[in-house]
């Protein structure tokens, strides 16, 4: 359950930005969650909503979306792997390069990017 600590950080950065722009309210935030993060989007959404109560971001719209993880194999083939959350762990357990069958290393997919804020 580290969705709360991630949500805390997202909110802190968002509120900071809103303040810098002298906004009085955050209406919307969009966040891209790397597909290999051990975070559950519904819980993250819930955490963001709970933590924003009483702040400029209360009742904001939250747009969360996953971006696929990227892997590189021993022969330097780069693969994007988009896996449904439910299957992620099973799929990872036997993941091989689709081109050559060699094992993969993670290139990206462990980011959680606060893309955009709409404030007023």
């Amino acid at each position: 359950m580290h969705e709360f600590s991630i949500a805390e950080d997202i909110l802190e950065v968002a509120l900071d930005e809103a303040e810098k722009h002298k906004a009085s309210r955050i209406k919307h935030i969009s966040v891209e969650v790397g597909g290999l993060m051990m975070a559950n989007l519904e819980q993250l959404d819930f955490a963001l909503r709970s933590l924003s109560v009483g702040t400029l971001a209360e009742d904001m719209e939250v747009d969360l979306k996953t971006v696929p993880g990227r892997f590189k194999c021993d022969n330097n083939h780069v693969n994007e792997v988009s896996i449904e959350e439910d299957d992620l762990y099973l799929a990872l357990a036997s993941l091989r390069c689709p081109e050559c069958g060699s094992p993969l290393r993670v290139l990206s997919g462990k980011e959680c990017v606060l893309k955009r804020i709409i404030a007023e």
């Binding site: 991630i6 950080d9 997202i10 950065v13 968002a14 930005e17 809103a18 722009h21 906004a23 993060m37 462990k110 980011e111 959680c112 990017v113 606060l114 893309k115 955009r116 804020i117 709409i118 404030a119 007023e120």
Partner: peptide, 10 residues
Amino acid sequence: HVIDVDRDIM
């Protein structure tokens, strides 16, 4: 304001 933050929280 539309603020393009584009910042990785991790």
